[in-house]
Amino acid sequence: MSQARTMENLEVFVDTVRAGSFSAVARRRGVAVSSVARQIDALEEELKASLFTRSTRALRPTDAGKLLFSRAVKILSDLADARSEVVSFEAAVEGVLRVSCLPTFGRRYVVPCLAQMFHTHPGLSVELDLTERIADPTTERLDLAIRFGHLPDSTLISTKLAEQTYVVCAAPDYLARHGALHSLDELENHRLIDKRRSQSPLGWREVLGDDLLQYGHCVFESDDFEAQRQAALAGAGIVRLPDWVVGHDIGRGELVALHPEGMPPAEMTGIHLVRALRRPSARLKAFVTALSDHVGRPASWQRAMQRQLP
């Protein structure tokens, strides 16, 4: 049997395992049920193994079928990736784009740049995974993961989208009620908003360590940046967040950037676009361009903070 015919039969086999019946695969492919059955028979003959246990009520993969399915899914996926790389420079911007990033960044910057893309490229669709965990483009079949801070050494390909730093800030109303923060020694008189300790060392603990409680009263903890931002805007306390979360609020005067004496200098790190494939697809290149234009250089949150009134 030719390699091309074997690959075609493997595709039919994978579809059949997922669908659970010959008839469902036949309807989707627009062929007769007997045609699907013949392709499965041919694959079983080639491999000298039964791949399904067949009855009038059910079609279930055998142990050999389960093993072949796990291998075939990877083979077909790798083949699709290879094809994507080969045609990426000439391909149309269409198909499914899979992206992962932090929830707040996704809602604030990724989603708004998609509307024009969908208008310009009607064949494009996007699956956006909003998650706090570090997603792996290789194992999770992602086109792109957006990562923040320092990148560990890896075989992944990264492009810097923008820079970020952490900012200490509070609402004017909070400062009017509790007083300004001139030094870290004054934190004991203030209410703090922080990232949940169980989730990450970021936030106040990144600079104050586990002795946070000796500096001030932590009134609100959340693993979500947006929730911390909303609490700060409501005047609940002082927060330490990335500038891309609060930069526009500071620019509008809704939050005030604080620079207490004794605070370690804020480190500038990167926001990186990370991918596994060496050659980006046309849809990925279009998305990166759209997101870069939306964020701007310098980034929109940095420009907003520079416009803050004294």
Rank of each mutant, 00 (worst) to 15 (best):
L151Y: 07
D153R: 11
S154C: 01
S154H: 06
T155A: 14
I157P: 02
I157L: 11
T159I: 15
K160M: 14
L161C: 06
A162Q: 03
E163Y: 09
E163V: 00
Q164W: 10
Q164V: 08
Q164T: 11
Q164R: 13
Q164I: 11
Y166C: 12
Y166F: 15
Y166S: 14
V167A: 07
V167M: 07
V167Q: 12
V168Y: 05
V168G: 07
V168F: 02
C169T: 09
A170M: 10
A171L: 08
A171V: 00
L175I: 01
A176E: 05
A176C: 02
R177K: 03
H178K: 05
G179F: 01
G179A: 06
A180N: 03
L181H: 04
L181D: 02
H182I: 08
D185H: 11
D185R: 09
D185P: 06
D185M: 08
D185G: 12
E186C: 07
E186N: 00
L187R: 02
E188K: 12
H190I: 02
H190R: 08
R191K: 10
I193E: 06
I193Q: 04
I193D: 00
K195A: 15
K195H: 15
R196I: 06
R196Y: 14
R196S: 15
R196N: 14
R196L: 14
R197D: 11
R197I: 14
Q199A: 15
S200C: 11
S200T: 13
S200F: 09
P201R: 10
G203W: 07
W204E: 05
W204I: 07
W204L: 04
R205A: 04
E206R: 13
E206H: 15
V207C: 06
V207D: 08
L208R: 05
L208E: 07
G209N: 08
G209K: 04
L212R: 10
L212M: 04
L213W: 11
L213A: 11
L213P: 00
Q214W: 13
G216I: 06
H217G: 01
H217R: 12
H217V: 07
C218V: 12
C218K: 01
V219T: 03
F220M: 04
E221Y: 11
E221L: 10
S222G: 02
D223L: 14
D223N: 12
D224E: 13
D224F: 13
F225N: 12
E226Y: 11
E226N: 13
A227Y: 14
A227L: 15
R229K: 09
R229Q: 10
R229T: 06
Q230E: 15
A231K: 03
A231M: 09
A231D: 09
A232D: 00
A232V: 05
A234M: 03
G235K: 00
A236D: 12
A236N: 12
G237S: 01
G237R: 02
G237Q: 08
G237F: 09
G237E: 04
I238L: 03
V239D: 03
V239A: 10
R240F: 15
R240G: 13
R240A: 14
D243P: 04
D243L: 08
D243E: 10
W244L: 04
V245Q: 09
V246C: 11
G247F: 07
G247Y: 10
D249E: 08
D249W: 05
R252N: 13
R252A: 14
E254W: 03
E254K: 01
L255R: 02
L255G: 07
V256A: 01
V256P: 00
V256M: 06
A257W: 02
A257T: 06
L258W: 02
L258D: 10
